[in-house]
Design a protein around this nucleic acid. Structure first.
Lengths: 347, 347
DNA sequence: TTGTATGCGTTATCAC
DNA sequence: GTGATAACGCATACAA
């Protein structure tokens, strides 16, 4: 792969030194204009492509960035990637995209490979579900440039771009309490070792406390990140507490909310009449659901842009600041929360 | 990025030659077991990571594969990518994923970069919309290993994995004719320079001809690949031919069908009562639409797997066969075609 | 079992 | 302006 003509080949044909060819092709000014022309033409006609592998070996720069996402089929991430691409592309870098499939082992392997490949920096949304930050701590201390996004690992010297998860979660919970007067509210929660799992649970609790609503621990359940895990968690909750069901559910993201709606409906109850539900993400499907899902809109594209900008700054600047960047969300009210569809803005 | 300790560093510390360190770390058998142990431990404690850039320069292999997709936000492609990943990952390769955003110029640039990066092979679904195959012809003749998927470029020496587009398109069109007795049928078509655009139009025509249905050329319109272009094409069709509207529409993919449904409903007509519509893809949203979309289910994951397998074979075998691989589809009947929801299988 | 020389394709450096 | 040489980090080929 790649063309197999090298500087040397061109040099031989033209009877100049490889060095002159290199200079000509890199448009240095200490080359005669005529020879420069000759060399360029010959290079083109021979189909020369510079070998970046060799180039990188010398320059110790690859102009590539590695991206690690936990789940490519969760529509949020492809949208983030588009934002990343836009920035990275315009800055002359190339992307290495890897998908960890929610498995930290795979994430680690991907990062090892990426680093062996000598990417200039790493953009990661971690699948980490245990408190094993040692891995990241080590590579960051070793000088790796990394910026986390969405699922952050904090206080280990890396910048991070995310939404104000806690505040947003509080807001949407308060919508249920204040607009709809629900007080029996459950939370489908994410792994507590993942930042968004923690933050969104905290926001939920903040709202409950601020409004003096008693918290029922039986209704705070682990629901993973995906549709199938959300379905299962909700189904179990319905089974186990059939005698005392919540009136509303705050799901930690849209996929789990979608799974939960299935479970509720299959259980013979209706949304939002029997149980209202809200999500977090604003998945591409959420406006199409029956009922359309009220959720927190996360500006995925913008998160990608911001993260990429921060990483490039981290790579290129002398003494980059470690920042925690928050991108604002907005409530996307639809009807799964109990709002009637004629009083709401649909998109 | 990457650790900066090299074989040489380890060698100096241990007072052996760099070569011995290399051998030990690659687990060659012509190294004393004890020194092998010493070296390994020291390498680990020093945080050594082999520099693949250097390795690749020697071996002329990078163990990376470049993937070029036209549209990362069309859910079909992320699913294909998951299939690719599964295979590639288990074969010890790494992925370089790039998104051309339906722009051939970007696709070309991505491929140039990928090749300069010396990827071992290329998996591409082309955004090409003109008959400019010269680019691919040249690189394939130059020895590049490439396998196309979904959007293929044929007869230029590369293998290709896709569904039987033409036959599937014929089948779903015949469903409209034979099951629902529609005869006034329109086609939202894709660019004719893209394989799926051509094939799906052909399948549509095959069905019409086979069933002796007259073809109205006014009802065969260019509709791009996306929701917005589908909306626009359908809207224009409704405007321009309000006096003589089709009873049914065959859209070349689900995104355009989704856009078209919007247009029809906004025009004040209903689906499928006034105009029935079918798609092609089985997008993640299609079962959630109102009405749920009848479509051709394309096994995205499997397409990814097959393409990756073929590419790896192409890379690793001596004299790989150039193949055209077809993955079978199935009709996913829902209700946008006019089938009533109680007689159909939903998923 | 271990070490030395050499080359992969490119560029920095110093000479001419 | 242009060329020779060395170096980037590793592995192959050969020597000891």
């Amino acid at each position: 792969m790649g063309s197999n003509v090298t500087l040397k080949h061109i040099a031989e044909v033209l009877d100049v030194s490889a060095m002159t060819v290199s200079r000509a092709l890199n448009d240095r000014d200490n080359v005669d204009e005529k020879t420069k022309q000759r060399i360029r033409e010959k290079a083109k006609s021979m189909g020369y492509t510079p070998n970046r592998v060799a180039k990188s070996l010398v320059s110790r720069k690859t102009h590539t960035i590695g991206v690690v996402i936990p789940e490519i089929t969760h529509a949020f991430f492809p949208e983030v990637v588009r934002g990343i691409e836009e920035v990275v592309y315009n800055s002359g870098y190339q992307l290495f995209l890897t998908n960890a499939n929610e498995q930290f082992e795979r994430e680690k392997e991907a990062i090892e490979t990426l680093r062996a490949q000598r990417v200039d920096g790493l953009l990661v949304s971690s699948s980490l579900t245990r408190e094993d930050y040692a891995f990241y701590k080590k590579i960051i201390e070793g000088g790796a440039k990394v910026v986390f996004f969405d699922r952050c690992i904090e206080n280990i010297g890396a910048s991070c771009v995310s939404v104000n998860d806690r505040e947003s979660s509080q807001k949407i919970t308060e919508h249920l309490i204040l607009e709809h007067n629900y007080s029996k509210i459950a939370h489908l929660s994410g792994p507590q070792k993942v930042s968004i799992g923690r933050e969104r649970l905290q926001g939920f609790l903040d709202a409950m406390n601020a409004q003096d609503i008693p918290i029922n621990k039986d209704w705070i359940v682990q629901a993973g990140f995906r549709e199938d895990t959300g379905y299962e968690a909700m189904w179990n909750l319905l089974q186990d507490h059939a005698d005392n069901l919540p009136e509303a559910v705050v799901a930690l993201n849209d996929p789990t909310a979608i799974g939960a709606i299935d479970a509720i409906q299959e259980f013979g109850l209706s949304v939002p009449e029997d149980i209202a539900i809200v999500g977090f993400t604003d998945d591409i499907r959420s406006s199409l659901l029956d009922p359309p899902l009220t959720t927190v809109h996360q500006p995925a594209y913008e998160i990608g842009e911001k993260a990429a900008e921060k990483l490039i700054q981290t790579i290129e600047e002398e003494d980059p600041e470690v920042e925690k960047i928050e991108v604002p969300t907005r409530l996307q009210i639809r009807s799964s929360c109990g709002c009637s569809s004629d009083q709401i803005h649909t998109d």
